[in-house]
Design a protein around this nucleic acid. Sequence first.
DNA 1: CTCTCCCT
Length: 840
Amino acid sequence: MATLPVDTVLPQLLQALADAPGVVLQAPPGSGKTSRVPLALLNAPFLHGKSIIMLEPRRLAAVNAASWLARSVGEPVGATVGYSIRFQRQVSKATRLEVVTEGLLTRRLQSDQGLEGVGVVIFDEFHERSLQADTALAFCLDVQRHLRDDLKILVMSATLESGPVSHLLGGVPVVSCEGRSYPVDVRYQGEQDGDIAQTAARGVHRALRETAGDILVFLPGSGEIRRCREQLRQSLTTGAEQVVPLYGDLPFAEQERAIVPTRQRKVVLATAIAETSLTIEGVTVVIDAGLSRRLQYDPNTGLNRLVTVRVSAASAIQRAGRAGRLGPGVCYRLWSEGTQSSLVPYNPPEIRIADLAPLALDLAAWGTTDALSLPWLDPPPTGAMNEANELLRELGALGEDGRITPLGGRMAGLPLHPRLARLVLDGERAGCAAVACDLAALIEERDIFRRDRLTVRPVSDCDFTDRLEAFYEWRNRRGHGDAILDPSACRAVDSAASRLRQLLRVPVRAAMPEHGQVALLLAQAWPDRIARQREPGSDRYLLAQGTGARLGQRSAVRDQPFIVAVEMSGSQGAEALIHGATTLTLDALRQKFGESIVRERSYGFDVGLGRVWAREDELFNRLVLSSRPVPPSDEELRATWLAEIGREDGLVLLLWSQFARQFRARVALLRRVCPEEPWPDLGDDWLAAYPEEWLQPWLAGIRTVADLQRLDLHAILKGLLPWDLQRRLDEGAPTHITVPSGSRIAIDYGGDAPVLAVKLQELFGLAETPTVAWGRVSLLLHLLSPARRPIQVTGDLRSFWNTTYPEVKKELKGRYPKHPWPDDPWLAVPMRGTKKREGR
DNA sequence: CTCTCCCT
């Protein structure tokens, strides 16, 4: 066997692993680590005959590695070397080296915490930092610390800062070796404006001129690939080159076309799928647009968002390396050297940007309530973790104490996202397990409808019954697909569904279910996405979790009051978009979610109508299912009015009679001039600030402003004064005073000083200014003519008689001859009317 | 105006 770079470090690696609980092996692509290291370990003495598990990030890689390794020891797969991927296992009693995909190890650990009989766990391609690999590593380290101090952990990675991993494993040794690849000449194209697809097409022309060999172009997504292809179709007119697209959503047969060698010179327009997952024969030139697209979970909305970002330096290196597999290559980078130095070094680990519901369920099944108690290279972010745990509680997987429930335990046992696990178990309980399996597979696998072909879908009440129907049709005719179906996607769904049925021991295949059945299954798996239409006819919805969303144009659901928004995407700044939904009846919602539906009363003041309203709402989380007006209770009336009165200018709601105003002014006067007495504060500020102290008892049954204005405020305020103060009030601030003429005249307490407005003739014989408050306050006299015209304002009657009266008399005598104008008002008889009338 | 790539 030819020597590979990793061979030179194998002895060192074996020794290090014998001495330490783990090792980090740093080896770039082409070093041979995946093919050599596991074989070298098989006979390591420290293993004592125990077996080896090697993790691979992809199924294809796992199967390929297992068959290569089996061939190396001259055996068929499933003898000494075997593999396990989801729903597929090739092992026997003789198997000592099992290659597994990453998620499977976590699954196995859940049922066999001690990893019985396993001596080493190898993490291959750990630099990809998938959520499953990080989880598996955390669990393995937990096992090593508490159960199996003899378990060895070997982390292998191409590009990775080795320090932090080594530290996480307990300060273990790092072994490095060379890779083997040909030199790649990197040429920077410089910054370009405009459409990246167009820039890439120009790059293709340059590469065609400057190089030979097949060209691999990295673009962020299928849209850019389509546009770039269109550009090239117009500009490459000789037909000497073949341009082929390559991305994950293409049907398998079309992907093949991109991978197999051709006679013409080939230009492959690919997404990141060609970075690690697929290798294209014959490529010596790479054009890297420097962008990639990825899903990013937003814990604020609970939605994933597809974002386009600059590649990391590590990705750029990986992409360039694709040109150096056969011989020296060339890589054109469609950016500048300045930009290059500002690239982030690595892609963010998935655990930092992903939906963590699956992780949260794994942790709960592991018995961990605090994720941070496990060893992580990057701990799961708190926001996403809280969202995940909240969802698991809604799904019934976690109890209020945060611990896993029996239902959660069953969910964790299924190889599905927690929502789909719940869906399948609900289906089982409802007697439609087979439908549930089909539905789960349809949702989980790639869309069976060909995206590029589909323009209009039939209008129905559920996007998923459309899909189920199309899928069942395909299955019945053992179909080859058609204009709108992707057969490879259909096969993937069929296979996943049948494996799920096996797991649940459901023998029969399903027939087309009732719509209501599908809707209920979906509602229970997406309870947070149950949504209510904002208004009839609208495309806008409010979700039970409290956020808003709009129906996408391609959804078959239109104008329905209640839906479950199963497939949604967020986008920055804009309202979330619903891509796949189903209608839900209110009855079904009440029936299935009765425990979560609460009745809540609310009430308030309608300013326009001037009345207190109350209603009873039926609430499901943040959704109002129904609402009906009810008569406000006395308690609600009291609370509303007290709040309204307490507002700024709230007192104007009340009708203040003259009498009530005067009463408050009288009390205010005595409060001011007799501070030693307990006169209450009845000023605006106090009344508005403490309505509960004086108005509360009177508010029962008051529903409208009109009711409120019928309250006798004078009586209410008077009631605040104890009996003796009421008497003292009449004494100290009488409402009226009797003047010498015998008239009882009202005193106006509204101004700063109390005012007595009286005809001059009625005061004849009175020298002293009348007072109130037991002589402490003189009345301000507004002296009036017989026609009640103001003559003079004075606070000193005696001085008026002496000085001003003679002039007044002169002036008015002529105008009012029938009235008396004596020379000596001191002694004159006071009069209410004219001389004649008085004499009668 | 959906849609990078994976995985139990």
